[in-house]
Design a protein around this nucleic acid. Structure first.
Lengths: 193, 193
DNA sequence: AGATAAGCGGATAGCTCATCCGCTTATCTG
DNA sequence: CAGATAAGCGGATGAGCTATCCGCTTATCT
């Protein structure tokens, strides 16, 4: 047996746990490991063995979405229009945050439970940084806005949308609208140019 | 005895509880009624009698600040410059949210534990609405931005600042910067004008 | 097929929350 | 001022949740 492989039943249970957690997240129910175990028809210890904390499970649930965003970020760099690339990337990010309830808490937390999450967030951040720098080189970004502001601002938009409330379609609409307002403020003001 | 008055010791304990809670909030410690009781040197039941839930206590702690903001909102309407009035008001709001840890959760919650909180939030919202409408009348507000967006956007800025982190002075600076970016996006775009 | 250890499950100990009830004390009345 | 009254106090306690441990099961390898 190779050192990293998982026993077949363990792998199956891992999937069940993540799928159950995914359902709970989609229903807006907070993850409680005991509860997840019960709903998945598994022993409590099985869940705790795979995921030490609810945060670790949540990060695992959020991972595929983070991967997709990071992948899009890479692709966006191929767009010759720097502004359009940045705008498209940020649009995807806020839409994802509004669509997937697992993302906001993961995005807003500085210290991750899983190393994998840190990796994903770093690759996402570096994509964002590259896109922002490229837009800046095109003179489209005010000097006091830096890459370190990107994640907070995206979290801020997502939070604003959540506070505003409404159904899913409303929230997507609100997210686009708030992002549009934000993007108006990204270029340098006349006095900064 | 008039029906609404409180016994002297009860009033004193109420003050102690709120003061203790204020300290905890300032230290960034989550309010737990049992814990508050112990720190205030009071019985647990005394705290539960005055405040049914941690939210009710938090709202009480936040109330003075909400009152001050509402009062400023009234005054701001006296400013002949509609845009400056709106900008000043929103600046106070985000600075308060960043300075007082009791505000963000209270502002972001739709259903209040205390009727008083609902009152205060309504008066604050109506001040904001009046200021926004006045700025709109001056042609300084894009048509798709309504009064219903004001509270969410302020919460969004506050959340973005919290995610960004830093010391208190840093956060104030970040808050002003994010608000400045947001305000750039408030006026109509050329195509909307 | 048998050996082995990885993995499983649920009982349970530890902790936090919120209520209840006998006692204390402020306030009112004569 | 003293007694009566009920408003208010405090901490013991039961209910509910979290997370760990350990004896049993089962997948995997030879």
């Amino acid at each position: 047996m190779t050192t990293t492989s998982l026993r077949k039943d363990a792998a199956r249970n891992w999937e069940r746990i993540v799928a159950t957690a995914r359902d709970l997240v989609d229903q807006g129910i907070a993850l409680q490991l005991n509860d997840v175990a019960h709903r998945a028809g598994l022993g409590v210890a099985t869940v705790y063995r795979h995921f030490a904390t609810p945060e670790a499970l949540l990060e695992t649930v959020a991972a595929p979405c983070l991967e997709a965003l990071a992948a899009h970020g890479e692709q966006a760099l191929a767009d010759p229009d720097a502004w359009r690339a940045l705008e498209g990337f940020l649009t995807r990010v806020v839409e994802a945050q509004v669509t997937d309830a697992a993302l906001p808490p993961v995005a807003a937390t500085a210290t991750d439970a899983l190393p994998r999450t840190t990796e994903l967030k770093e690759s996402l951040a570096s994509a964002g940084t590259a896109l922002l720098d490229r837009a800046r080189a095109a003179g489209a970004v005010r000097p006091d806005l830096t890459a370190a502001d990107l994640v907070p601002l995206m979290c801020g938009v997502a939070h604003a949308v959540a506070v505003r409330g409404g159904g899913h379609a409303d929230r997507i609409d609100t997210a686009r609208r708030y992002l549009a307002i934000l993007l108006e403020g990204v270029p340098p003001t006349p006095s900064q140019a």
